[in-house]
Amino acid sequence: MASKGKFHLIWPPAAVMAGLLLIWQIVTSTFNIEEWILPSPYAIGTEMQEAWPRLMEHTAATIRITLLGFGAGTAAGFVLAALLHFIPGARTALYPLLVLTQNIPLIVLGDLLVIWFGFGLMPKLILLVLVCFFPVCVSMLTGLRQADEKLVTYMRMIGASRSQLFWRLELPGSLSHLFTGLKIAASYCVISAIYAETIGSNVGLGVFIRLASNGWETSRVFAGIIMIVALSLLLFGLIAGIERLTLRWQVREEAAGQ
């Protein structure tokens, strides 16, 4: 049953994808569209093959900065959420400031960070931390506040301390919110890493694409885009997988509810 169910989930999007690629190929070859305007899927494939070693080099750099920023940013978001939850009044006092950090356009922020921190790793890391902490922090805060009232009363009646209440009830109860935040952060993180690379770097997919587009090498731009998409999907899938393992009780609960 399970494998049949999964197959039903996979084949419709796969068929749509394959169909689109086919139409794309047919359109580009029948109308003789120039490769620098819109390369055919076949041309992109060939380009990827040729540029593979360089593509891998740049991808590795992007993976490194993405994981660093994602790790630091989500950890910051988690700790901040816990602090705002624990310290009375802190949430109300600091919440507007949190939202404010998200209102500055990345392009402006990138320039400012370069002015302040130069062209090294630091400005890129700060940019990614600012992008990643927010969804994690906000969704965690929501989860922590939504702890089941009757479970809280039970824990307090039997004498749970504040830290026991957090580790044994509030945190496990907000894990599904945490994972939602992590998934949003993962999606934004890759895109932001690409942007961060363009503000001051000589390696990474952002640089690769920027150079390719400056040279009108459109099929190379598409090769870079494919790597970015693959990277995003991979990170997202990784988190979704960890989520499924961690929240096994919930998966079963949903299945039982159907």
């Binding site: 009363t153 009646m157 009830l169 496990p172 929240l247 919930q250």
Partner: peptide, 9 residues
């Protein structure tokens, strides 16, 4: 308590 109040996880 009246409701079992078991941790679902």
């Amino acid at each position: 308590p009246q409701q079992a109040s078991l941790m679902p996880w």
